[in-house]
Design a protein around this nucleic acid. Structure first.
Lengths: 251, 251
DNA sequence: GTATGCTTCAAACGATCGTTTGAATCGTCT
DNA sequence: AGACGATTCAAACGATCGTTTGAAGCATAC
């Protein structure tokens, strides 16, 4: 019989946790299709059949492994967005604020060894780029409500962007975000950008946010008046720019 | 017998090309491990054994498929870098210039349907993120000389960054670049960023370059004096930042 | 025509995949 | 002690994987 997935009450989680850890580590370096259940079970030192017993199969193991990390991220993001909204007292949130609701929880989890740790950002990126249909479907199904919430928030913050266009840009933004931070040395770059260990959330946000916000606020492709984009920039440039670098925006 | 890979003279390339196209399309949506040879051959309408005959196996097919696109990119990049150097007449190139030598050829190939087309950037990113060891090894081996050339150029442009640190940063930069450009809607974003169709190379470059350059010029993690990074920012914030978003960093 | 070299073909190889089975083991109650 | 549910185990299942085989097709040269 299949072990009940929802029954967390009196479960001996030792086996499950070891499988989670093994699957996560192997997934990080081989992907879904490149990781066999025999690799996972031998690394976790459990029997091969334990996968089917505890999770019903490979799909179940990997989706549960992802959910273990992403459910917390998802909940924290939605909660923080609600918090920002309450603080705003009816005033529509700024684009930057909505983005912060997505960033901060991810950074917090990445700093907590218990709930993700250093590899959390890498896992986030890997999950996002893995082409396995099972994972793609799982993500879009399970986290659709949260995505919809953020989509609404962005729509309120960017009333001039048509709904359909916004869908594209959000999808792209998520991709750029995950891709970028999923790099093998993402943490090293983070360390390089922030000399201090603590409170680097803010620092990273200040560097990456303008990049993404510019993309979201970019002029529409159809109704583009040629001169508008190049000459007058939607975002003021940095106060100290003496080189010819303009402002971060694209992906 | 295995068909000689180097003998391109009197070859009937119809079969090979159909296999390339099929493998490329399938690789884009399923990855290396997710694409079986039977999927490729049935899509290309060739016999299964043709893979081994023409390419020696799955590894050979996929590496050749990648080389078909990337060899041209590689050559164009190196050539453009040399061109910039000649123009500079001994003066060390700027960081931005070296970056341009990497960007422009990629965008050109992406605009040429014959040598890559719209999916070229996506392929670039997919190849870079695919975890299959064969591809990782192939890339680092075949394009090592070119990478070394660019590494030298960056080293000249950034004399204050230690060699070992530079290696890390370049690796990350390539990741961020490929990841970013590999997004499903990269072309749509490119179109959105550039209201005009022509000359968007410069525009995209001017938007993306600061992001990458900031990473390259970032203060070193070890010798960091705590206050330096946060207080005096290497990059001033936008003039309009009244929210508390500090700085982007995570995933 | 026959011979020759390149290419394609159907069929099978062994290996590995995810999954299933049924019995053995463990822990906890009565 | 015995009973029972939960968990683990070794072993095998059929399917699919990449690869190999040896013969058939198909041009071109003699």
């Amino acid at each position: 019989m299949l072990r009940s997935q929802t029954n967390e009450v009196r479960a001996n989680n030792a086996t499950r946790d070891r499988m989670f850890d093994a699957a996560e580590a192997l997934f990080l370096e081989r992907g879904f299709d490149g990781t066999s259940l025999r690799m996972v079970t031998s690394r976790a030192d459990v029997n091969l059949a334990a996968v089917n017993y505890h999770f019903g199969g490979k799909n179940g193991l990997f989706t549960a492994m992802i959910a273990r990390r992403f459910d917390a991220l998802n909940a924290a993001r939605v909660a923080l967005l609600g918090e920002y909204r309450r603080e705003a007292r009816g005033v529509p949130l700024e684009c930057e604020r909505v983005l912060a609701a997505m960033f901060v929880p991810a950074l917090q989890l990445a700093r907590d060894p218990q709930r993700g740790g250093r590899d959390f950002l890498k896992l986030l990126g890997r999950v996002y780029v893995d082409p396995a249909p099972v994972l793609r479907e799982f993500l879009s199904e399970r986290y659709a409500p949260a995505i919809e919430q953020f989509k609404e928030a962005f729509a309120d913050a960017l009333p001039e962007v048509p709904r359909r266009e916004l869908t594209w840009r959000l999808h792209f933004m998520l991709g750029a975000l995950a891709y970028t931070l999923a790099g093998a040395d993402a943490w090293r770059l983070i360390a390089a950008l922030s000399a201090v260990e603590t409170q680097d959330d803010d620092l990273l946000l200040r560097r990456l946010a303008p990049f993404l916000i510019a993309g979201l606020k970019a002029p529409l492709p159809d109704a583009g008046v040629p001169g508008a984009t190049r000459a007058a920039d939607a975002h003021p440039r940095t106060t100290r720019s003496r080189t010819n670098l303009a402002d971060p925006r694209a992906a």
